[in-house]
Amino acid sequence: MSLDAVFDSEEPAFVPYLAAGDPSYEASLEYVEALERGGADVIELGLPFSEPIAEGSTIQSAIVRALKAGMTPERYFEFVEEVDVDVPIVCMTYYNLIFQYGGSEGGPRKFVERAADVGIEGFVVVDLPAEEADPLREACDEFGLDLIFIVAPTTTDDRLESMRERVSGYVYVQARTGVTGAREDVSDQTAQTLDRISDWDVPKAVGFGIKTGEHAERIVRAGADGVIVGSALVDIVAEGHEGDEPVAETAEKLEAKARELKTGALRGVGAAVESE
């Protein structure tokens, strides 16, 4: 299924994130599959990079665990081929891994070709602003993949334009400044940012700091087409790992959390309809 097809539906999309290979390849397969059972519409699957400058401590730790357990770009592609889910997978990573995959010729083309080959639908590249993204955009066009950009509360109008020209799939609205991590509140900055890009023709998914069904509901009510959740799910993986929990038990918790978030997002639409 393509990203367009997901967002064409009336329902808000639930977009969970996990780092591939955290805490092990095998367990991670189970966890990603549990997210789909819990209602995931798209999965942002992290390809771990050794210098994750935009991540808070939760996802940093996940990346460290995954790298330690042997995750590499090649293993990641195998993972995507093997994992048994029908929803689209978006690869979330940092540019150096994409760049290096090209070997001596460098550049993103080889990486994108391989990603298309294993069925990845798009990319979020955390440290690649629109200005530096043309080579990747061209490769995505060649192989029919989407390139998602992150809009931050601090993004200026000029910068919004350069992203609007290059974005496809969906736009990732960063709910607040800072790094990733679950928070108690959902920022007012979200509504303002959504307002600024309301006339864009790509769907808007909001992430950063969302950890409960209630958060998800509020985000959707504020106008989001999708809700992205990472750290709150990674926390469950981390607790399971630290507590030596059976993989099936952690998977069940992930499924339940996913269901809570998805249900919350759906309530957001209902409420919006009622209030009209």
Binding site: I53, D127, P129, E132, F149, I150, P153, T154, T155, R159
Partner: peptide
């Protein structure tokens, strides 16, 4: 060279 940073930092860099 270049400016390979998360979007949230781009305005500060500009």
């Amino acid at each position: 060279g270049g400016q390979y940073v998360p979007e949230v930092l781009m305005p500060a860099i500009e």
